[in-house]
Design a protein around this nucleic acid. Structure first.
Lengths: 103, 103
DNA sequence: CATTGATACCTCGTAATCCTATGCATAGGA
DNA sequence: TCCTATGCATAGGATTACGAGGTATCAATG
């Protein structure tokens, strides 16, 4: 096991409430972590495409203010994956924190 | 920033009390995380060599029971790096946990 | 005595993840 | 008019980790 990237998990989490598009997802992650986490576009979009290929999110295009945006929605499988990832994160982070000391 | 591998940090942590050799370092990490973290040799040795190149650990050879072992000792720089890494881990893990929910 | 398992070290090829840089395009403000 | 923010996307490279393989010693088992 060991560490796995948290980006897919964070993306899925950002989509639980409502669908969103790539740019906004990245902003939400940054905001909600108070600027600590800041994934770049070159990282975000490939991750998003991969999640779509795997069936964890699905996308649809919409046009807002003359611009077309690709919105992503989490699927049932995606919610399942999120639950697993959450549990895994908890286990791994606790393990590392246990060793490094929490004080 | 975002996530960075925790292995170098865990190695340095394993060496704070006393010098050790590769195999034992891996075992300690596994034990102290109750089996959750389990880095393989193909991961551990390159990481150890890299830390030595960077001056974070230094090594010396010793012969025990007819077998030669390479022992690693953390350096002053290594302790500095450990302190920084610890702080970084705390910041990043708190950020992710904040988003994913700790419940 | 031979084989197996644990100890101990190491390298190579591959996969995954992320970054930087770059490209394209539109909208709004300086 | 130009710059910034928005919005999507790809290419190239670095880093990290894993699996598989190789070498060797020692103790226990058969």
């Amino acid at each position: 096991m060991n560490f796995k990237g948290t980006l897919p998990t964070l993306i899925l989490e950002a989509l639980t409430e409502e669908p969103s598009h790539g740019y906004l997802i990245a902003q939400r992650i940054k905001e909600r972590s108070q600027g600590v986490l800041d994934f770049k576009e070159g990282t975000l979009y490939p991750a998003l495409h991969k999640l779509e290929n795997e069936g964890m999110v699905e996308s649809y295009e919409s046009v807002e203010k003359g611009r077309s945006r690709r919105h992503y929605r989490i699927t049932r499988s995606g919610r399942g994956m999120l639950a697993k990832d959450r549990a895994e994160w908890r286990e791994l982070s606790q393990a590392v924190t246990m060793i490094l000391g929490e004080a």
